[in-house]
Nucleic acid binder design. Structure first.
Length: 598
RNA sequence: GGGGUGUUAGUUAAGUUGGUUAUAACGCCGGCCUGUCACGCCGGAGGCCACGGGUUCGAGUCCCGUACACCCCGCCA
């Protein structure tokens, strides 16, 4: 029996490995046919594996058998070849990593033929994402996706290496846990053994990592899946991965130092870039004031400017809408576009549409003329000279600028202008290429008032420690309490968040009370935590990084779907497997579950 | 839950004021070709115009609904 590929003839190189140094060697390559160029007399193929491409030539005078069989090759056939490495001489292809050499095949085996793929396995394709997701295993053959997943591997390895070296233990936590109130909606898993009862899939390992601290493990980390049954976005998937960690006997600077070191490792692993540490820190209030968001993109200016004082000093400045906003306890803010006077009316109308899409009722604006007058503005007629001058001073507006205004409730004003600023940054190309800005946003409020629930809710989560000096206000004036919480922001994206936790059961009980969770409910749902905190819990805190989002930002990608191997669509379906799918009546009966369709 | 965009060969797109047989490129199939690497040349096949209604003498085109995908708001402690 002749020698057989795989069994007797082993692979000697990857398809990305051969160089001039290998000329003259006999090599064995396995891989996929990326392209074929059949000249009749001789046949070229580019053979592909995850490491790259190598040109293989079949010539009748080298091996008539291999040449004949090569005529049958098509895209994506899986083959093994043996042959000798030759220098290409004058035929070098500078576009290929292996372009200085080629392999003249003496033997060819077709391991598997392939149907014509629904789309090409090229680097750049314009095939609809829907089609790519339906055949994700083919999409993943493409080099850009392979590169992303290799980057992800390096990031995972860097995380494990770095955190282990800093004394963290990689410990696991359960996915199937008790469903908890508040926060993200849980996916529910019916319990066959306990009729009518359900597990919730963990939205994060939060409580378990705190319990590890109570147990004395001191430092924990995990690269862990989390599950949230909320509506999807380009940057939100129902199951996603966090780098989760927790530390005992620490305050904020200790967590920051560890994370800054980790981020430096991740940037190095992902794209070989060196970061400057420590990262700047910005209070939440300042972020909202200057940028209108709690995750500011500091790579460009275009900061918001509050002009409420000016309006008040001018008694409304002749603008009834401004005056009304103030009477209602609202604020007035402006966004100055330097040189925005060059924008056409249509372009400005376009901006108004953008603002409206973010929830604005309109977008008052004014072009600043040579004498400081306002033109093309609904405010131009009524605004007093004092108002204009005051606003110009505050915003440093000059001739040729455009001022955009929002007024009313601070939340809406900041929301609209903040999002408008972000969209203008991209649209006007204000973001310097290659720049990465990392910063900590600190001093978040402990509670936020929810209009919908007519109650205070935890701004971060209910286990976040208040600042010690604010503990006395937890029940009397919750809005005043600041939290020991912090977010890590990269280029305007929240990539991580965490806090110093409550390690005192009486403080924890107060927070539950402020959140409107009764003693009974707290004991029933979080009794184990309150109890654990009574048995000697160390001061502790930690943070979780959004691994997918981080990979997207570091490896490049428009959406999380570009960095998750098998992602869900916006409706949470898997176009390849058809999940979620039907189940049988028998399965439901066994689970004591009945489905009631809308 | 709300708003927007889209759906035409395997893929990406074109398709005029509603009017004969729905185009093109790439891919695919067959033939030719010994230096290509976006190989080339010749020939060919391939369509429930997303689905369901409606208007009309006539619908890919107009109207209504549905499905799916994507983007945004709400939501995501």
């Amino acid at each position: 029996m002749p020698p057989r590929f795989i069994f007797d003839i082993k692979r000697t190189h990857s398809c990305g490995a051969l160089t001039k140094a290998n000329v003259g060697e006999s090599v064995v390559l396995f891989g996929w046919v990326a392209t074929r160029r059949d000249h009749g007399g001789c046949v070229f193929i580019d053979l592909r594996d995850r490491e790259g491409l190598t040109q293989v030539v079949f010539e009748p005078d080298v091996s008539p058998e291999a040449h004949a069989l090569a005529g049958e090759l098509r895209h994506e056939y899986v083959v093994g070849i043996r042959g000798k490495v030759h220098a290409r001489g004058a035929q070098v292809n500078p576009k290929m990593k292996t372009g200085e050499v080629e392999v003249k095949a003496t033997e060819l085996e077709i391991f598997n033929r392939a149907e014509t793929p629904p789309f090409p396995m090229d680097d750049e394709i314009d095939t609809a994402e829907e089609k790519r997701l339906a055949h994700r295993y083919l999409d993943l053959r493409r080099a850009p996706l392979q590169r992303v997943l290799m980057t992800r591997h390096r990031m995972n390895q860097a995380t494990r290496g770095y955190l282990s070296s800093r004394g963290f233990l990689e410990l696991e936590t359960p996915f199937m846990i008790r469903s908890t109130p508040g926060g993200a909606r849980n996916f529910l898993v019916p319990s066959r053994l306990n009729p009518g009862k359900f597990y919730g899939l963990a939205e994060s390992p939060q409580l378990f990592k705190q319990l590890y601290m109570v147990s004395g493990f001191d430092r924990y980390f995990q690269i862990v899946k989390c599950f949230r049954d909320e509506d999807l976005r380009g940057d939100r998937q129902p199951e996603f991965t966090q780098i989760d960690l927790e530390m005992s006997f620490v305050a904020e600077p200790d967590v920051f130092e560890i994370i800054e070191g980790l981020m430096a490792e991740l940037f190095r692993a992902a794209k070989g870039k060196e970061l400057t540490t420590p990262f700047p820190r910005m209070p939440y209030e300042e972020a909202m004031d200057r940028y209108g968001v709690d995750k500011p993109d500091t790579r460009f200016g275009l900061e918001l400017c509050e002009v409420t004082d000016v309006v008040r000093a001018e008694n409304g400045g002749g603008v009834p809408l401004f005056a009304q906003a103030l009477e209602g306890g609202g604020i007035v803010k402006a966004l100055r576009l330097p040189g925005g006077g060059g924008l056409s009316r249509t372009e400005l109308d376009g901006l108004e549409e953008v603002a409206k899409s973010f929830g604005a009722r309109g977008l008052a604006r004014a072009k600043v003329g040579p004498g400081g007058e306002w033109t093309q503005s609904p405010l131009a007629k009524s605004a007093t000279p004092g108002l204009r001058q005051g606003i110009h001073e505050k915003t440093q507006a000059k001739e040729g600028d455009v001022l955009l205004f929002q007024f009313g409730k601070a939340k809406v004003v900041n929301g609209v202008l903040g999002q408008l600023r972000g969209s203008l940054g991209k649209r006007l190309k204000l973001i310097p290429e290659g720049r990465d800005d990392l910063l900590w946003v600190v001093d978040f409020p402990l509670f936020e008032y929810s209009d919908e629930q007519k109650a205070h809710v935890a701004a971060h989560h209910p286990f976040t420690s208040p600042r010690p000096e604010d503990v006395e206000f937890i029940l009397s004036d919750p809005g005043r309490c600041r939290a020991r919480a912090y977010d890590l922001v990269l280029n305007g994206n929240e990539v991580g968040g965490g806090s110093i936790r409550i390690h005192d059961s009486s403080v924890q009980a107060k927070v539950f009370k402020a959140l409107g969770i009764s003693d009974e409910e707290a004991n029933s749902k979080f009794g184990f935590l309150l109890e654990a905190l009574r048995y000697g819990a160390p001061p502790h805190g930690g943070l979780a990084l959004g691994m997918d989002r981080l990979t997207m930002l570091l490896a490049g990608g428009e959406s999380l779907r570009d960095v998750i191997p098998f992602p869900k669509t916006q409706k949470g379906t898997d176009l390849m497997t058809g999940a979620p799918g039907d189940v049988t009546e028998a399965q439901l009966r066994e689970l004591h579950v009945r489905s009631v369709l809308p």
